[in-house]
Design a protein around this nucleic acid. Structure first.
Lengths: 113, 113
DNA sequence: ATAATCAATCGCAATATTACGATGAATTTA
DNA sequence: TAAATTCATCGTAATATTGCGATTGATTAT
């Protein structure tokens, strides 16, 4: 981020931006969609599914995990990842709140025509 | 993005990621919220509001503009920026579709406990 | 006309992200 | 036990993002 200026903004703004950042890469979108289709999955399955290296996917998974968007549990030699549905409900309402605020512009955009 | 791998993903995945990226910075969140509160605004007003340099804000505005999220119209020596509400409706439903897909996991997360 | 204001753009520096191969620790299979 | 599998982590390179000051072109005010 170059220099970080997070202190200039509210915690809510920073949190929303962080969550958006988690979705700001097509690989992570694809991972999340894949997880929503299966009961669970392992890293290796994703390597076959997406065209990325194992270490790259592991990194994306870590990013999603650190934000609490997914969870992983060790299952022998493999790891099962799945969506953290409670967390996603919170995320969804955060974004809904933002979208509502955006669309609650009670004025017409007469200024930009 | 290091090397870009957009070709690996669907257009829908790339589009969602691009839109998320637009929201992936607290300054841009703040700009959008500010625009939703006022009829319009100019770059200079934002410089006073946020603690960033004029050129930095101009850059953020450009990013939002390129995605069609805001529009600007020259008004003499100043520029009025405002939200592109039609565009935001489309964006909102894109994200809603994604969130619905995510929360439509008809299984319990028995795997990660 | 001259000065002041406004916002885009350029050039640059600092930092973050993305990606990969290699390595490592753990488990499983042979 | 030895080899193979699975996934995290490390190191590194390429690229993107963020931010600022300086400059520029345009408009407005004096």
């Amino acid at each position: 981020m170059g220099k970080s200026k997070t202190l200039l903004f509210t915690p809510a703004q920073n949190e929303l931006a962080d969550l958006a950042k988690a979705m700001a890469h097509p690989a992570r979108i694809a991972i999340l969609q894949y997880l929503s289709n299966r009961k669970s999955c392992v890293n290796g399955t994703l390597v076959a599914e997406l065209g990325l290296a194992q270490s790259t996917i592991s990194q994306h998974l870590l990013e999603l995990k650190e934000l609490g968007l997914i969870r992983g549990s060790i299952e022998g030699a493999t790891v099962n990842y799945c969506l953290n549905t409670e967390r996603w409900q919170a995320v969804q309402s955060l974004f809904e709140g933002f979208f509502d605020q955006i669309s609650a512009t009670d004025h017409l955009n007469f200024c930009c025509d």
